[in-house]
Structure formats: structure tokens, C-alpha cells
């Protein structure tokens, strides 16, 4: 197939549907805790803010770690 040079192409790697569900849930989880953190801050509830921002940060770091590790594994395999 001839590629149109006027466009950018987004390549999405194929993966099983359950992976997409897990990714979706992960995003919902992060958005939820971010919302709780922002709300708690507005409510002037320091402990609730601390816990929610903690859960958010740990979840985000864990997610990034798994994503990077997966990418590295895949690269190793392709080599």
C-alpha cells in the first residue's frame, strides 16, 4: 500500500483485549485518585490528600515501571 506523505501514522501494537481492559482500568484508577487528591486538597483534608496523592504516585510509578519493563523485554526479544 502506498503511503500518503501528508499524514502522520500512529502505529498501535496488537495485543489481547484483556490488556486493553487492564490499561483502561489503570487509567480510571489513576484519574480517580487524582480527583480524590485534588478534591481533598480543596476540602483542606491533609491526611486524605496525602493518602490519595500517595496512592496516585505509587500507582503511576508502578504503571510506568511495568510499561518500561515490557518495552525492554520486547526489544530484547526482537534483537
Amino acid at each position: 500500500m502506498k503511503r500518503n506523505e501528508g499524514y502522520c501514522y500512529l502505529k498501535i501494537r496488537k495485543c489481547p483485549f484483556y490488556i486493553w481492559i487492564i490499561r483502561g482500568l489503570g487509567i480510571v484508577w489513576l484519574v480517580f485518585w487524582a480527583e480524590v487528591a485534588v478534591g481533598s486538597r480543596m476540602e483542606l483534608e491533609p491526611r486524605a490528600f496525602g493518602i490519595s496523592i500517595g496512592v496516585f504516585t505509587v500507582s503511576l510509578i508502578l504503571g510506568l515501571f511495568l510499561w518500561i519493563r515490557g518495552n525492554l523485554k520486547r526489544k530484547k526479544k526482537s534483537l
Binding site: F32, E35, V36, G39, S40, M42, E43
Partner: peptide, 8 residues
Amino acid sequence: TKKDKTVI
């Protein structure tokens, strides 16, 4: 007793 600033 809550301010309801968060959906939780």
C-alpha cells in the same frame, strides 16, 4: 460531614 469536593 463532608464538603463534597470529590466524587468519592
